[in-house]
Amino acid sequence: MILSAKDLKKTYIDSDQRIEVLTGACLDVAAGDLICITGKSGSGKSTMLHIMGLLDAPDSGELIMEGKKIEAKSPKAPTIRNRDLGFVFQFHYLVEDLTATENVALPLLIAGQSEAKAMARAKELLCILGLSERLKRYPNQLSGGEQQRVSLARALANRPKLVLADEPTGNLDPVHSKEVWDMILSLNKGEFRQTFVIVTHDVEAAQAADRVFELVNGILIPA
């Protein structure tokens, strides 16, 4: 098992109101999985993903990565995020002053790779994702779909064990949305066998996943 989330609980306090977002959510992610998490707005899908990605800490519960317990507040968390996890957000979060290739090279540079190696790997990934003509473009010179594909390439840069995607198509029109979904499917089913956990509103698109869960009342229920 790449990652196991066990009995995750998370409560937010908004004004005087306690909002129990996660009440004991569990999820096991195996290598090569393509898992989609759906649910209503505010149901806690993104919170679940953020906790699994060590971006946020649960109130209780634990995360086990390949047999070892991992925590968001641990000093090792940044290294785990860099090497073992990849993130794709609803907004691309590309660094606007860097080209597409340079953006993709960032996780590799953070990992301590040389610039030459990082740039070579970044170019390779962008070509795989069909962006060979856009290597030197800045984010504002790319379409929404292209921006999200660059973001996807960046998530894959360090060959992560798991890519966590939070509404990767939530900000795209249907054409670009399909483009990104096709890319994710090909990365999962093709030679990469990349493992994905994707949070989405798009129930129809989610049907392409191996397993689909719905977050209801703070727990994950197979859909």
């Binding site: 940044p78 290294t79 785990i80 995020r81 979060y93 606007e96 996780p107 990992a111």
Partner: peptide, 11 residues
Amino acid sequence: SEIAVLKSLGA
């Protein structure tokens, strides 16, 4: 957002 992404990437 850039700070967020750099942090999330492990910087």
